[in-house]
Design a protein around this nucleic acid. Structure first.
Lengths: 343, 343
DNA sequence: AACGGCCCTGAGAGCGTTCTCACGCGCACG
DNA sequence: CGTGCGCGTGAGAACGCTCTCAGGGCCGTT
């Protein structure tokens, strides 16, 4: 019982192929009785349109590519990415659009991916975790392929993007630490070739200045967005400035590393040193004590990415759209928040 | 500069469409000079085969579906899933096969997914995190669509699968605890409608018996594979049997919850209670103390899934293939392993 | 010199859609 | 009663590829 063609359905319904096609695609210019007889035939025969044939003539693919470019595997351990995918799935659910995942983890695969994407196999592309100035978004865009970037795009490229408010989140985190009476606040940054890392750092500096203090370069160390990097950075910071009483880590993973280092150094958290992370991922709940963190809903981010992309595809325009999503500071024990309570 | 067709390439190379097609598909019956001239034309014009047209005639899609059915969002927080995807991507990389992600998180989306998959849009399907006796694998199989299940398939269905050695891993974990001199070993299980949870529990029981001890139902509590569930289960266990000196949790997430509960109850880990988790996910390194855990490489699992599926598709047979991957116990501080050292 | 075989090639049909165009019908209008 | 128009419909080309089949060229054999 394989899938019947339009032709077969047409015969069964006593009409022409064209009419069946019209019914399938919801054209209004079909007599009600024709429509009903076609619908009955479709139901009986279990007809499903052949996507390839449709694509061949319409030049639409009804699928979008999601590119995760992560050569280092860096963010891959980070669970945030699964959530984004779920969000994208949710954003796509209302439409018959499918999601093609393109992993590119080596220069070789990167070339393949680029070829695939420019080969007209997808109607649009969502790009992720870009580094430095990856030329891919502009390259795709110049080929007329709608593109949306998750996170800030590299180096002011003229590309649509959906991002979290990294800047505002960092400020909220630092203000919180200041309100807790902390005076020597350090930061562990991400790799500064990633826009999100840069922006979080700038938020940190701005909040420090806004409080009338002078940023101190000694209170800053890169943790590379990894757990180990965070741990090492914390060790360096403690050695350099033993009087640190608070740390803002630009990711939960790095915050977890910092907690280990603090523990090893015999500092109590939050009594001696308060710690705030960023992402509010599952990791924030697994640490001891539970980690205060800047929450960003990656699922909402994903949904928004899908929306913006679909909008761009539908409009067929070259309008660059920007969406910045709010973040929210979740206070837990690591920064002296509610000692127990809502985890 | 849109993508040229076979026709255009043929004209440029001074041959017919058929010959170009032969070159593209690597047919050996092409004169060397024809081939070269075609290859040159392809390179110059930037030709890429149109997949839709190809699919239309060959009835191959060159794409496989990966279904993540996770209505509860339960495993989604778990980062393991990103790794599996990466593995699948790696397994597919050698071939021009793309990966279509199908998220189904509601009964509605589930129906859509089933329709999509049976609609002939993919050459094969990888299924994930199935519950109870999900009929989907058998349904697809009966429609002639190659299927591979990640993890144990529901209820002895006759379906290919790739699984980790949950049984052996659990035994290794418990044996380790026994060797450490622990005498009252409890377990926190996953939801017993999931095969992996059942198997890990059976491994636990078997190891207990193999040591000449008698399993005690009081030393067993379900944690539902969630962090909160693990915490609650640990509280229940401590209340029921205050003399517990070791816990085997069937997932890292639950182990993390158990650590919180132990901490709250003033028990020292590992001095008073040793803890071993399962999965060796990123969480195992974020806990304090670092968690001993049964390691399973989800990336290898993913790669193997892709391999088995491709094999089945190529062979066009209905042979049911089973692959069981080794697990390995990683000992860290939570079970009294190396006090520092390799994290 | 005629013939069979092999190697390479090209013509052309066909895959299942969509979409343009033209046609037949019924109706209102002049 | 002819003309024009809108509505619903069908015929048929087109999309870009694969694959079968037939045929031309060249060899060795009889």
């Amino acid at each position: 019982m394989s899938i019947p063609t339009l032709e077969v359905v047409a015969r069964a319904a006593g009409v022409s192929r064209a009419t069946v096609s019209r019914v399938v695609n919801g054209s209004p210019t079909v007599r009600i009785e024709s429509r009903q007889s076609v619908e009955k035939a479709i139901a009986q025969l279990g007809y499903v349109p052949n996507r390839a044939a449709r694509t061949l003539v319409t030049r639409r693919n009804d699928s979008i590519g999601v590119v995760i470019a992560e050569p280092t595997g860096r963010l891959f351990g980070d669970p945030y990415f699964a959530e984004v995918l779920r969000g994208i799935g949710a954003g796509l659910a209302a439409r018959e659009v499918s999601l093609v995942l393109v992993l590119s983890q080596s220069p070789d695969e990167e070339r393949r991916a680029a070829r695939y994407l420019t080969g007209g196999h997808v109607d649009g592309v969502i790009l992720f975790s870009l580094h430095g100035n990856d030329p891919l978004p502009e390259h795709l865009q110049s080929r007329g392929i709608p593109v949306v970037v998750g996170g800030q795009p590299p180096h002011g490229a003229r590309v649509s993007y959906v991002d979290n408010d990294n800047h505002g989140g960092a400020i909220a985190a630092v203000n919180h630490l200041i309100e807790q009476g902390r005076t020597r606040i350090a930061t562990i940054t991400g790799p500064l070739d990633m826009p999100a890392a840069v922006t979080r750092r700038l938020g940190f500096l701005e909040a420090i200045r806004a409080a009338g203090r002078t940023p101190d370069a000694n209170l800053e160390e890169c943790g590379g967005f990894t757990r180990e990097g965070g741990q090492r950075a914390m060790e360096v910071l403690l050695q350099r400035c033993p009087d640190i009483d608070a740390v803002f880590a630009a990711s939960d993973l790095m915050a977890a590393g910092a907690l280990s280092a603090l523990h090893a150094a015999g500092r109590r958290v939050p009594e001696d040193v308060a710690v705030v992370g960023f992402d509010d991922s599952i990791i924030a709940l697994s640490t001891q004590p539970a980690l205060s963190s800047v929450h960003q809903s990656m699922e909402v981010t994903g949904r928004e990415l899908a929306n913006v992309l679909l909008q761009t595809i539908d409009a067929r325009d070259q309008v660059v759209r920007h969406v910045v999503l709010e973040t929210e500071l979740i206070v837990r024990q690591s920064s002296g928040g509610p000692p127990t309570g809502k985890n």
